[in-house]
Design a protein around this nucleic acid. Sequence first.
DNA 1: ACGGGTGTAACT
DNA 2: TAGTTACAC
Length: 672
Amino acid sequence: MPVARPESSDARVIAHVDMDCFYVQVEQRKQPELRGLPTAVVQYNEWKGGALIAVSYEARRCGVKRSMRGDEARAACPEIHLVQVPVARGKADLNSYRNAGSEVVSILSQKGKCERASIDEVYLDLTEAAESMLADKPPETLEVIEDEALRSHVLGMSIKDGDDATECVRDWICRRNADRRDKLLACGILIVADLRKQVLKDTEFTCSAGIAHNKMLAKLASGMNKPAQQTVVPYSSVQELLHSLPIKKMKQLGGKLGTSLQIDLGVNTVGDLLQFSEGKLQELYGMNTGTWLWNIARGISGEEVQGRLLPKSHGSGKTFPGPRALKTLSSVQQWLNRLCEELSERLSSDLEQNKRLASTLTLHASAYRLSDSDSHKKFPSKSCPLRYGTAKIQEDAFNLFQAALREFMGPYGTKTQGKNQGSWRITGLSVSASKITDIPTGVSSIMKYFHNQSASSCSKLSTDSCIQECPASSFSASESCSEQRSIESETAVSAKNIGVRCKGSDVGELEEQADTLTKEDVSCPSNKAIDVLPQSRNKLSTSGTQMGRMERKRNNSKEMTWGTPSIADIFKNYYTTTPPSMQEIQEDSTRANSSGPTASQRYRDEERTETTWSYKMDEIDESVIDELPPEIQREIRTWLRPSKRAVTVTGNKSNVGSTSSIASYFSPLRDR
DNA sequence: ACGGGTGTAACT
DNA sequence: TAGTTACAC
């Protein structure tokens, strides 16, 4: 599954940090009385005491295991404290854990490249930090070494009998004749010990860590000594470690592939894999997997630590087991509404906090059909462009569901069987949002709008009737963000703009603004009518591509009050103001008085000279294009990549997917 | 009728 | 691409 990417002579320093029974720790921080007591986090207490999803080490010692029922846990450990997962809208709400995970990431990401691997796990690439420590202040020169570092476990290190393990570790860390790899790992030990201490101090959470030359080994190591300890894998210990390691313990081999290795090849330990040639493994499992297997048998794994601190998708789902299976469309709709509500809230937070937009909405469900033991037909998943606004998400999700249900039921679907019960049962529902991209910082002014009305104010209205619905009061004065952003807000969000956009009453002004764009236009042969904005205007642009100019032969219609200007502005702002990256902004702030304008200053300067603008995200959808003259529509649609066309639910004219969000405008373009 | 709720990634 | 499948915690 993972693409094979060997990396010979791998002298990286990679750490895997794994929070100890994380949900329990989060709850214990909320209720400190529970610290040190056998505790488990449980969800849905109704049935058999609920299911355990996290178990403290004290509880594990009395035999409590994950995926026990609450009742069994009590039987095994009568003193156990069972804490319920927060519930919102009738479902488990994991937000407190997500947020706690973010706290940890924000600390761990300070030292090097960081990848948030899950809610409670992080990979770090500490190579650079280790290298510079080795250059500046190698361990062997230190007179004191942190206790936490001395408590590390060094695989393959023999502890001289009767000797203090920490002394052995000290020797190992400070060995002068160690090879470079070991010295780098020694630095890794110190850095990670430091980070873990910092995490504990700032969050009150303990974690365990593995330190090695690649992700696979680091991950393996982090689980070897828990809780609150760290384990190092020197290069010289790899072979022995893997030799007797059960194959299923390797990440990615815990499932069917691992089982196949055991059953089909008789491979029970990673060492057993060494007998097979790369060619043989490729023949058996395919090119990529074969090579990958051959490599991991040797402790080789070139996977890089992705510098990613934020999730790539958001989802909200719930299962309805057994008798709880949903039987009616309306119950499905109710649940879907709740799931979408949660999803929408999380999208709003992501937008507000991270300036990101998701562009695809996907619905997944699991279901079975009554009295039809062809039962194993899968309920198809469906997706469509994601439109912001809770009600829109709900509407689209429900339409996706209905489309999928028809497909699932086939010809039998049409019968309403009885009163309101279909011949189907839904045992699981989930909605998710994906294809998340950063929005250019300049666009973030739209968030003032979004922030205050994402929940509903606009979402029930059709896009055209929506226009008058953005009172100036919907702007949020507060923006929990950087200095730069508040400055930008003042310039970008002006009362004038609100009036213009919302009333749609001042088209002339907008046209005038748009017209100024066309001055230096160079028309492009292939786009005679189009133009929007010549990239030559973009000072930051490196591309020579030039757009033609958009003819502003407006057709006077009143319905077009805002559509065309919206489009023009979107493109104009996108192409004229390439925003500085977050990193640039941060760099700016750390070297405030270097010569020349900083990236963010440059950006702000440009933004001031350009027309400022703002939108209500909900209002920017494909219907905007529909308002353009037909020949321009055609052109623009080709830019925008094949417009995703409706998932049409036969029978009624629902047209899920016929509109697309603002993100759809940006994402196809931003890559160019 | 229980591992639930999430999340990533490769495959097709 | 959209949808499926596998895997993990």
